[in-house]
């Protein structure tokens, strides 16, 4: 099953690459669009597959007593990372390196935003451990 699918995806990728190489000489714009849509298709296709992994993670989290907020946050981080990476690569393909790095930067910022409440809880705990009034 998976073997067939990987062949399909690799075949699609090769096909798209050859087409892009042919078209690029005439119409660079269409080559770019073709690259974008191929990437989008593979991305969406794989998102459906990732669901299996995510269900494993959820199962793991449920069996142990991890608070569900941990898992939610972690999944959000993965999502942000993937989307930012995907967008950045498309933009980079079009030659806009600087915009791509800004997109990645935005992804990093959002991941760090997730960490703010955790950091504040830990800091508060550590401060609470210190003897008061020193």
């Amino acid at each position: 099953m998976s073997a067939v699918e990987i062949i399909q995806i690799v075949g699609l990728g090769l096909l798209a690459t050859v087409l892009i190489l042919v078209v690029r000489e005439q119409k660079p714009m269409f080559a770019f669009l073709l690259a974008v849509f191929t990437g989008l298709f593979i991305f969406l296709y794989l998102i459906g597959k990732i669901e299996v992994i995510i269900s494993v993670l959820e199962d793991l989290a449920n069996r142990s007593g991890i608070p569900s907020i941990y898992l939610k946050t972690i999944l959000k981080i993965i999502g942000i990372a993937y989307i930012a990476e995907f967008g950045a690569q498309i933009v980079r393909d079009a030659g806009q390196e600087s915009i791509a790095s800004k997109i990645e930067f935005a992804g990093k910022v959002f991941i760090l935003v997730m960490a703010v409440p955790i950091i504040s809880v830990i800091v508060e705990t550590v401060i609470g451990l210190l003897p008061a009034g020193s």
């Binding site: 981080i77 995907f86 990093k108 960490a115």
Partner: peptide, 17 residues
């Protein structure tokens, strides 16, 4: 995680967890 750049940040958050 898709790439190394994000890995560092994600690692920070997970380390906090």
């Amino acid at each position: 995680l898709p790439n190394k750049a994000m890995l560092r940040y994600a690692r920070l958050v997970i380390g906090l967890f």
